[in-house]
Amino acid sequence: MVETLLEIHGLKTWFKTDDGMVRAVDGVDLRIDHGETLGVVGESGCGKTVTARSVLKLIDMPPGRFEGGRILWRGRDLIPLDDQEMNKIRAREIAIIFQEPMTSLNPVYTVGDQIAEVIALHQKLGRKQAMEGAAEMLRLVNIPNPQHRVHDYPHQFSGGMRQRVMIAMALSCQPKLLIADEPTTALDVTIQAQILELMHEMKDRFGMAIMLITHAMGVVAETCQRVTVMYAGKVVEEAPVGELFGQPRHPYTQGLIRSIPRVDRAAEKKQRLEAISGTVPSLLDPPPGCRFAARCRYASDICVREMPPLKEVAPGHFVRCVL
């Protein structure tokens, strides 16, 4: 049997603000097995980033707060752990890369310094060896001339190259899970494909699992084995990738799939992209009931009365909808 690395049960990460409680993550369940790529999709503001950062406990508390749930990393709940214990897991077992490569690296240190910092810490190496390790990592992520580039500062790299540096840094301790929070959203389309390809090459080489957060359905179809769809702080559907695209059950998932730009359809020109109308509701003290109701064409009375539970409709296929 495949080892389950990460299991999140009913995670609630809320933020106390002047206006009230923002329920950014409000009962999220997800699972990642050894070596698999899980896609986490949903529009902006659905709580994907907060979920990802909660796993490594990178949320500022206050204003953030864990209101409930468990984050099981290889069977052990991370929520009660203190910073010192988390630091043994960060980078060494779970690494993370972010959406903005332009701001994710510290501008005042060379990229070599920043990669070597992780290597020196977790592999207990001296500075010189750690720098050699850093250059080796840059070579692995296909940065030309790595021996020289380790001494360069982040501003001397392009966006795509910086994301490669971030990947090199994240993988330098060979983590079991890489959380990639919209790693390509800020990049040019051509660069996006290269970065995704690199991530999967690295995944095969190191045998790690990836939690790929994105709001682009197209990316998910190409790269993931399973998909978790999030809407307004909740998981609304979870399924193997083929099944999700073949038989999407939740109206939100269906909407997301219809909004994928497709080359063949675009060619006909008449069939325009169908974006889901409306926007993600405020997560500030949300009302009971299905959070998608305001935008759902199938919404009925019972939808707004209470939150539908996450039901298993087929093996491994879960949906949160009354339909």
Partner: peptide, 16 residues
């Protein structure tokens, strides 16, 4: 402290 690279630094496990 709220900039991205500080979160990156925290994610490395180097201690506050």
């Amino acid at each position: 402290v709220k900039l991205d690279y500080v979160i990156t630094a925290r994610s490395k496990g180097i201690g506050e």
